[in-house]
Design a protein around this nucleic acid. Structure first.
Lengths: 339, 339
DNA sequence: CCGCCACAGGTAAGCGCTTTCCTGGAGACT
DNA sequence: AGTCTCCAGGAAAGCGCTTACCTGTGGCGG
């Protein structure tokens, strides 16, 4: 690998001059030398060693992102927003998938800190695990103490800047809609218990239903993986246990897609006999059949706002932005069938 | 930010000893000193500067990945495979989205080279653009000349290790199936002309149809973006221009989803009046209505094989692995309706 | 004609770490 | 008791780069 010294030697100049030419330093360099250096760079296919540069000029420019899984449409959208703003600021992103493993998340925080990232974004639900939360916050605090910037998406448990989707309010909206349409026996297929997103959404739903006099029964809730297959499995369980449900709320759209598949498999009409609702309004939500009634979360914006917060200077105090949820009525939810 | 020197000072040892303790060097260190160092590390929340480490011990461990767009399900799946193998080898991934911009792709190659990545994976279609291809290959050659490993996914235009999906064969399979089912007036909604993936798939289809005596007419092909909206738009155009088609082949599943949406909007029965086929078998393909007949590509395996090639030592000559495509029959393709 | 200033270019320090090589002390052996 | 060996720990070089500081030259004014 060619080094700056090689370039300088070939161009017959000092490393200092070569460096100045290559980085477009403000210090003037004679045209002839400049050309010799540039030619040497081209001849040697020289690319500066980014690590050496970072050591010499500690100007952190990359941003670390920790998500549960980029290939999950939810995070794919969020990441798109993160990317957009990062690119606008000329920042490179290092994207890490924790695959919902708290330990791995902790490791990645260390790793990104070691990489001297300018900022750290944690996207995705927190965990109901005080031990973990404390360790995470300690690590983040250590990072922030040395000038690192942190922004989280959808986590209550962090003291700093945060962007929050209105999970609870969104779920409430959905609950009210179902009640309004006459549904009384409502089942829920939920993501993992340990995720705060699950409990937040469940909380909003529970509140809405309780307020309208049809409290959510615990035995009408099934927990499973936050994905399509989890949704299908949970739906099967739910149907076997309580066949008289008129509506199923999936706590995200992937699960809702699984529910739809299971219902189709069983020949249950949607929304004729059972209505199905999702959450997130991921891109495919409008294209399944029946099109999914869901709660739209501004996923891309969640990402772009978080990145903006992270790249701005730290405020005097933590900023928490709540981005609103919106009910999207499509075909999968209809009036409850008469008993 | 605490440095190794800080740790050493606090522990009352030399930086050398501190380094040895922290990295678990093979050189023995007295238990007492070891503990003092570890305590200092904990007290100072010390994390080694990864850049300094890489400078001092040039042991490249991160792998760079350039994809068109991780949030595209195709790449999301491929990336999953890449990730898995990388993680198994203890490698961190830097994922870069080129958003199908060749210039950006070139920039990212430079950037990753500057980052001293151990290997570089280029995933996703090549471009019909000789100038670009040449520049890219030059850059990759320069990188490989200094010990960098390169593996590409789905690109003919690179001389080194490659993993190729059987785009052409897959399309042929699909073409034969359509002919077998009596389709003669077949339209195609294709991705951007400039992508080799588009032309490969189109080529396979064209060949199959020609062999069975119903050549593909150029005026039954529409090019658009390789996404859902592109698919919907191209379908609309196609239908307006040639309303008598009995089948529409989308060159990827996202476009097929768009096609389905447009057909539904127009009240055209699928597959009753028009059959629709996709390509890729992305996760949602089985869950739309009607479920998509498509060509399955082993997306995750594409990624895992490429990463494996890249992490193995370079062979004496380039290895090219072709991963087979498989026709997946679902509901969206049926027999051609009688005229 | 001499001295000073301005400025292009070079010298070298230092970023934070690893690792080779060296040192000094303890134990072993004669 | 003296010498040799062994080994834990430290000193220092060096990874590739940037940049503060220094040097030597040419142009200018007095």
């Amino acid at each position: 690998m060619a080094t700056l010294a090689d370039v300088a030697r070939r161009a017959g100049v000092s490393p200092a001059t070569a460096s100045r030419v290559i980085n477009g330093s403000s210090k003037p360099v004679a045209e002839e030398l400049r050309e010799r250096v540039l030619r040497a760079v081209a001849d040697l296919r020289y690319v500066p060693n980014a690590h050496a540069q970072l050591l010499a000029r500690p100007q952190r420019s990359v941003v670390g992102v920790i998500v549960h899984d980029v290939s999950d449409p939810y995070f794919a959208e969020v990441t798109r927003g993160l990317q957009r703003v990062a690119t606008e600021h000329g920042r490179l992103l290092i994207i890490c998938n924790s695959y919902r493993d708290p330990e791995r998340e902790l490791e990645y925080v260390e790793l990104l800190r070691a990489q001297q990232v300018a900022a750290l974004i944690l996207a995705g639900s927190g965990y109901h695990d005080d031990g973990f939360t404390q360790r995470l916050n300690e690590k983040l605090a250590a990072y922030e103490a040395t000038g690192g910037r942190v922004a989280v998406i959808g986590r209550h448990d962090h003291a700093g800047d945060a962007v929050m989707p209105a999970n609870e309010t969104g779920a409430q909206l959905l609950g009210e809609e179902l009640v309004r349409l006459g549904h009384r026996r409502i089942g829920v297929i939920a993501g993992p218990r340990v995720l705060t997103t699950t409990t937040d959404r469940l909380g909003g739903l529970r509140r809405a239903l309780a307020e309208h006099g049809c409290p959510l029964h615990d035995d009408r809730i099934r927990y499973a993986g936050f994905d399509r297959d989890g949704g299908a499995a949970a739906t099967a369980e739910l149907l076997d246990a309580a066949g008289d449900l008129t509506a199923i709320v999936a706590l995200n759209d992937s699960m809702a897609v699984g529910a739809l598949a299971e219902l189709r498999r069983r020949g249950v009409a949607v929304p004729g006999r059972v209505s199905v609702a999702g959450f997130d309004d991921m891109p495919i939500a409008g294209d399944v059949t029946p099109a999914l009634t869901t709660v739209r979360l501004p996923l891309v914006e969640l990402g772009s706002r978080a990145m903006t917060l992270a790249l701005e200077r730290a405020g005097d105090r933590a900023r928490v932005e709540v981005l609103p949820a919106e009910l999207v009525r499509r075909a999968s939810v209809g009036a409850a069938p008469p008993d």
